[in-house]
Each structure stands twice: as structure tokens, then as C-alpha cells.
Design a protein around this nucleic acid. Structure first.
Lengths: 379, 379
DNA sequence: CGCCGGTATGAATCCCGAC
DNA sequence: GGTCGGGATTCATACCGGC
């Protein structure tokens, strides 16, 4: 029965057109997974000179300003949300319709849109299994120093039905992929750049938001079986299709832009799949926790106001709330202030500075080791 | 004016009662920050644990009275969401009302509720600044192996108003706290355990979802000034109050459970804060007193007629008596002329232009620092 | 071939006070 | 409230050219 339905599907093809119309052409309860990277509705104030974001070296940041990311053009913020909600519920409704009862969905987004996507999923009857954080090892910084570096995106993994307990989850495969540790909900992966990033004829990026294959690899290894059918309603340049082909899964790509679709077809066509070729993917980045001195303060191990001394008590400095040190004539990190008092070009503040404990001096590195041991478990 | 309003506030107190009723007693636009860790509505198997109000660790919030019982009416999933949405919008509406125009809010939650909270924030007119991921270094493993280890919680940071650009963000303090690297949106911190975890008389944990003080430390150091007022509508055992006291901020705690409120009061009372605890943090350059280049000339540090050069001596300009610069085809401020010669849209003249000293080039910012040091010594 | 320095770039809701 | 203009602001990685 399952195979009959599968034969009716446009397997391993890229269909060009409006995703909602195209998805309506697919039969009920016929596919295993939906992976979706919908527009984020960024609402950037571009076009004006004031709206142009520049790096400190004055180069211009090439942000996303494509028509497909604009909702309620020229309207108010509230209209933009409303229009985005209508669009989101429409495609999610169809996505749920075509999923088998055992099916599941993944959606990726940022704080601009992911909360609206999450509510739509819940309201339509999907059942959330996890939210997963893609931590970017090399995100774009915040150039103006007005916010935190936007260093992650959020994925939601949800089963079609609340009652459904038989969604696919290859626990052991993921554990193996993660060096025999249970896979956590935070994934550290680099952004898509370098050789993997597709370029157009002009040498510029072919798509503004191409996702890394490693991200899709983890999703498809973990949540599908070989031969399963994965639908991507926002196919773009076909990362989902490329990884599906490598992993022996079927894909159906829906894409509105003929140029993107063409790039995707060529990309997927070029992939050679050996029968038993080992699959090579970007390995997950190993997370070596760096311990700033500020974390020691923030954790309450050393209080603001505490005096630190060098081994021979020649110099002293007071700890401030943000982990900087103050002496009579200098302020800065443990390293810079250590260098300053000695008149040295550099200094390792971790071994130079000591705190007092029962009359004796202990290097502050004592606390770094402790935090390393504690935080090292999370990778 | 601001102080008059502050005197009317129940500063550094824990008020017991329904948070929506209590918050209605606070005046409009009177507080600087709201930090909230709201309960959430976990919908499990209907009929058994239906609609039970649970926290992210799945502990049950005891429904002693009816504020919470309204969630436990055994309705459908959709009804349960609707009820939760009404509750969320009610307290967020009041939170926004009491915030100053320059105010901001932090809310923490998990995938069960954070999407609904996020949409409510956006719909009420808050403007999202970041979502921040608290990565737990020691999360509870997923024992059944059916999902990813739920290793994070999500915080949303939002300004009261979309147009508001003057929310408090101590960028430089946070950068210092993070070893001089811009703070990212993913924070690695352990869960609250060990000595920090409050225990009841029976030796069990006093509160099921006590947050680590380090989490609040980072929020309050980054997003408030000393003396600011922070409201926590779901005070629990008072982590927000404890950290606020340590950092010299005022708190107002709202808590419906008298037992939690009592634990919180005792906890905060026991905190000793030295008078000289340095609450100051690394200052932003934006806060430094402004020194016009003309003052450098007027003080005779650089004489009219002096030639200035960029670092690589590609361009030169002559200083005039009024502190303007002249090149072959332009005249103006150090910034304007610097931008003009480079063909750049903007330029920081203080770091771009250099004077000659014993054959090498020194940035004119050298003299600005000197004047600022004089001003600092004068007060 | 490797190393080193300069350059390019990534889903971005990115300034603020004085007049 | 609008305009003007001072001057503050970035991290990881890839690529390229020169040596």
C-alpha cells in the first residue's frame, strides 16, 4: 500500500511554483517528513542610507532584502505579523495534511518568526518533540554593539499528531554521530561557507540563506529511514535534496524561483552516490569551553570587591562586577592589569593573580579548573 | 521626578498574591526592567494529567487556588492553549504598562510555552532584541531515548517599544565579562544545584525550578544600572531579588505562594552587601565626555598649521586655528575630511589622523585621552 | 609547499545627543 | 519631532598573492 502511494508522488523532483498550490497537489498522508526553512520576515529597514548596515571598516553588509521575505509591504508591523501568520498557517496546514500519521516536521527560524511558527504548529495540532538550537561557530557579529551576537537559529521538531508515539527517531545513530554521547538539543555547526556555498555566474552567493548540509544530515539521519520521502516546501538551492540523495532518502522540492530551482537540480544531479560509499560530512565542532574570568565572578566564586594579589603581595587589585580589575591607575582584564602593574608587555592573569584563603594565597586559576571540569561535560 | 515615582514603589519587597492583581497596583511607566519566569501549561494525556500546570522540569505547580485552577478545567488542548494565552497576555500587558519607555523585559521558558510568550510579546508591541539560549552544562538526560536531551531553555529580551533605541545595554561590561569578546546569544551555565539550591525543612528542594544566580547576574549586569528597579512577577524563591541586592539594584517580587515568598525573604535578608562593593563596570566610550578637536588646538597641544596624516601616509591635511582640517579640495571637521579623502561614508577622525612625533605617527586620540584624564581628575 | 598578511563576508529587526 | 553631524562599532573563516 505504501509503495503504491509512493509511485504517485513526484519523487526526487523540484517543482516550481507557489508552495501552497504545489503542496495541494500532493496526496493526504503520503510522506514521512517535512523539512521547512520558510522566510523569516526580517523586516529590515533597508533602502535608506540610515538603514544600511556597515561593518566598522565601512564595508556594506549584504543582508536579506529579497521580495520573498517581505510581508505586507509598506504596512504596519501588526499587518506584517498578520500576513505572515496567514501564510504560515496555510502552508503548515497542507504540510500536516500530506504527512503520514507517523510523520513529523522540522522548521527552522530565528526570533523574528520562530515564535509565530511555533504557535501555528501547536494550534494546528502538531505535537512538539523538541526545539533544537543550531549554534553557529562563526556567526556574523553585532557590528554596532547594541545587542548580543545573534549566534544561533532555532529548529522545531514536531510530530504530526499528539497521540503519535511512533515517529522516527534513530536514537543510536545519533548517539554514534555524537561520539557515543546522547545527542543534546544544542548543535554546534559552522555556517555554510567556502566550497559548500553555491555561487552564481557572477561569483556572488547563489542564495542568501543556504543552510549547511551538516544540519540536514543530522535531521535526516535522526528522523528518517532509507527510502523515506522528505518534502521541502522552501527548497531554495536544494540542501535538503542533496543530503537526502546522499543518504538514500527521496525528496520532493517545492520552489517558487526558477533560478534557485535550476541551481538545485544541477547541484543534486552532480552528486554521485556510491552503493556503499562512506558518507562524509562536516563533523560537529568540538566545543572547548573557554572560561573568561568574568564567569568566575558571575558564578559567585569570587565576589565583586574582592582584592587579588600577586604571589609576593607586591601589587593588589580589586575585582569589579564585570570581571575587570581596578588598581590605582589602571582598569581592565586580569591579563592587562597584571601586565600593567609589572610594566610587562603581557601577563597570564590566571597564574599571576591570587585570592586569599585562610591566610594563604591561591591562584585564581584554581577556579578556572573547577569551572572547566563542570562545564566540560556539555559538548 | 523619577525619585518621587520610585518612592511610591514597594521597593525590595515580596508581595504575596495573584501577580496580575498585584502588578495592577504599580504605577504606569515606573520601572526599568521586568524579569519573568512564568509557569507553563503542559498538556499531557487528557483525563489523567490534563491541563496540569507544570514547569519546564515537569514539576507540578500546586494549584492551591483558582488563579491556577482555571488551567485545570479538563478542556481540550486548544482550550488549554487559549486559556494560557489569555493569562500570558494579561500579565504581559500589565508588565508593559509599568515599564518606563526606556524599559525592557526578559522572559524565560521552554518549548512548551516560549512560543506563545513570544507571539504575545510581539502582538502587544514589545520589540524583540534577542532570543538567548541558556545551555545547561548538566541537564537531565532523556532516559527513554525517544527525543534529544532537553539541554537548554530560551530567554527573550525585548524592549518596551519598537521605536525605542535607548534601552539599557552595557555592551562593554558584557564584553569584559566574556574576556573581551562580544557576548553571544548562547550562554553556557550549570543548572542550580549544590549549595545554591535552597532546601526546605524536609531536605527536599524548596522550589522546583529555582534558576541559577549566574543567569540573573548576566541579565542584570547587562541590562540595568545600579539603582534601577526590577520587577519579577513570578518571584518564587527570589533569585532575581538575591542577585539584584548583590548588584545594588532594587527589586519588587510578586509571588502567589506564601511559602515561597517566605523562603525568598529569608534568603535575601541573609545576603550581606559590603558598602564598598564595586558595582561599577567597564564604561562605554559613548559615555565618555565629548571633547571637540578644537579643544586640543585651543590648548596648544596641536598648533594650527600642523600636518596630520593617516596611518600609511596616503593622505595629509593641515590643522587650522578653529580645529578644522584643510586638504587640497576639502575643508571640515577631522571626521568629514577623513571620510572625504577616503571616499568613505563616515570616519572616526580621532583614530584616522596622526601627528608626527620623533619620526613616527601617533593618533590624535592620544591628546583626547589626555584631556579626558584631566577632566576626570578634576571632579 | 607552507606561512603570513591583507581582504572579503555571513538570515541583521545594529547610534544618539544637540539644537 | 526632525535634522544634523560627531564619532563608535566586529568574529570566525576562507581565499588570494607574495615570498
Amino acid at each position: 500500500m505504501r509503495n503504491v502511494a509512493k509511485l504517485e508522488l513526484p519523487l526526487d523532483q523540484v517543482l516550481v511554483g507557489d508552495c501552497i498550490e504545489l503542496i495541494r497537489g500532493l496526496p493526504d498522508k503520503s510522506v514521512d517528513l517535512v523539512f521547512a526553512d520558510p522566510p523569516y520576515n526580517l523586516m529590515l529597514d533597508k533602502g535608506t542610507r540610515a538603514g544600511t548596515l556597515r561593518r566598522p571598516d565601512q564595508s556594506v553588509v549584504d543582508g536579506v532584502d529579497d521580495a520573498w521575505d517581505r510581508f505586507a509591504d509598506g504596512g504596519s508591523t501588526a499587518e506584517s505579523y498578520a500576513e505572515y501568520d496567514r501564510f504560515t498557517r496555510a502552508w503548515l496546514f497542507e504540510a500536516r495534511r500530506i504527512l503520514k500519521d507517523t510523520g513529523a516536521i522540522w522548521v527552522i527560524g530565528s526570533y523574528h518568526n520562530i515564535f509565530r511558527v511555533g504557535v501555528a504548529l501547536q494550534d494546528l495540532g502538531f505535537w512538539m518533540l523538541n526545539d533544537v538550537i543550531w549554534r553557529k561557530s562563526n556567526p556574523m557579529p553585532n557590528f554596532r554593539g547594541r545587542r548580543f551576537t545573534n549566534a544561533h537559529e532555532t529548529l522545531i521538531w514536531a510530530a504530526r499528531n499528539e497521540a503519535q508515539k511512533t515517529y522516527t527517531f534513530n536514537y543510536d545513530a545519533l548517539k554514534t554521530l555524537n561520539d557515543d554521547l546522547q545527542m543534546r538539543s544544542d548543535w554546534l555547526l559552522p555556517i555554510c561557507a567556502g566550497g559548500e556555498r553555491l555561487k552564481g555566474d557572477d561569483g556572488n552567493k547563489a542564495h542568501p540563506t543556504q543552510k549547511p548540509e551538516a544540519l540536514l544530515y543530522r535531521v535526516l539521519v535522526g528522523c528518517t529511514h532509507p527510502g523515506d520521502v522528505v518534502v521541502d516546501p522552501f527548497f531554495g538551492t536544494g540542501t535538503t535534496g542533496a543530503v537526502a540523495k546522499r543518504l538514500g532518502r527521496h525528496f520532493i522540492g517545492l520552489e517558487r524561483d526558477e533560478t534557485y530551482a535550476g541551481v538545485a537540480r544541477a547541484r543534486i544531479e552532480a552528486i554521485e552516490v556510491g552503493d556503499d560509499a562512506p558518507l562524509s560530512v562536516t563533523r560537529s565542532k568540538r566545543d572547548e569551553p573557554r572560561i573568561p574570568f568574568g564567569h568566575v565572578v558571575e558564578r559567585g566564586l569570587i565576589r565583586p570587591g574582592t582584592m587579588l594579589f600577586d604571589q609576593r603581595r607586591r601589587w593588589g587589585a580589586k575585582v569589579r562586577a564585570d570581571g575587570s580589575l581596578v588598581t590605582g591607575d589602571a582598569t581592565g582584564s586580569i591579563h592587562r592589569v597584571g601586565a600593567h602593574v609589572q610594566g610587562a608587555p603581557a601577563c597570564n592573569g590566571w597564574t599571576f593573580w591570587h585570592f586569599e584563603h585562610q591566610g594563604s594565597l591561591v591562584p585564581i586559576d584554581f577556579y578556572r579548573s573547577r569551572l572547566r571540569a563542570e562545564l566540560g561535560a556539555a559538548h
